[in-house]
Simulated scan of single mutants.
Amino acid sequence: MTSRTGFFLLSGVLLLVAVICVGEGVQLIATGKLLGIGIGLCAFVIPAIGVWFLRQTIRFGRASERLARELEAEGGLPVDELKRTSGGRIDRASADAVFARRRTEAEAAPGDWRAFFRLAVAYADAGDVPRARKAMQHAIKLREAFDSVAAG
């Protein structure tokens, strides 16, 4: 199963659970009892948070893909330059070397979204997913700022 298939499957499950929670919340509120009303209102809040999180994740994925397509069209998409073990795992020293180079590039060009996109890929290759996500979010913000300056 690809990650995209898994994402859509889990998104569907999340939306199904949200619909069920809202339905149960309506029934609890309809009891007219104070406790039922309180729990029923909570049954609205929890799915709303889940749907908000799903929306943010989709927006992040689309923006990341847009940047990747643009970078690929420019010929600047990072290629897999990592050394691997005989078992196919990424060699840690190789990932650290690529990461150090990408970090230096990003520090040298703090306003370049391309450098931060490549840094995000290097973070991901090094196994640091939270920092990879932050670097990609920064690249997206830089690109959006560039778009707004170019439009205005």
Rank of each mutant, 00 (worst) to 15 (best):
M1D: 08
R4A: 14
G6E: 12
L9P: 06
V13N: 08
V13W: 11
L16C: 14
L16H: 11
A18H: 00
V19N: 03
V19S: 07
I20N: 06
I20H: 05
C21L: 15
C21F: 13
E24C: 13
E24S: 10
E24W: 15
E24F: 15
E24P: 01
V26Q: 03
L28N: 10
I29Q: 03
I29N: 02
T31S: 15
L34V: 12
I37P: 04
F44S: 05
F44H: 06
V45D: 09
I46M: 14
I46L: 15
G50M: 14
V51S: 06
V51A: 14
F53R: 15
F53H: 13
F53Q: 11
L54K: 07
R55D: 15
R55I: 15
Q56M: 13
T57W: 08
G61T: 08
A63I: 00
A63M: 05
S64R: 08
S64W: 05
R66L: 12
L67T: 02
A68Y: 10
R69D: 11
L71I: 13
E72A: 10
A73M: 09
E74Y: 06
G75D: 04
L77C: 03
L77G: 02
P78G: 03
D80C: 06
L82F: 08
R84S: 05
R84Q: 06
S86Y: 04
G88L: 04
R89G: 07
D91H: 04
D91G: 03
R92S: 05
A95R: 02
D96A: 14
V98L: 11
V98E: 05
V98S: 06
V98F: 14
F99S: 02
A100C: 00
R101G: 12
R102I: 05
E105W: 05
A106T: 02
A106L: 02
A108W: 03
A108S: 07
A109E: 07
D112P: 01
A115I: 04
A115K: 00
F117K: 05
F117R: 08
L119T: 01
V121Q: 10
V121G: 02
A122D: 04
Y123L: 09
A124G: 11
D125S: 09
A126D: 07
D128G: 01
D128H: 01
R131G: 02
R131M: 09
R131L: 06
A132V: 04
A132E: 07
K134P: 00
A135E: 00
Q137L: 10
Q137T: 03
H138N: 09
K141P: 01
L142C: 04
R143A: 10
E144A: 15
E144M: 14
S148Q: 15
V149W: 11
A150F: 12
A150C: 10
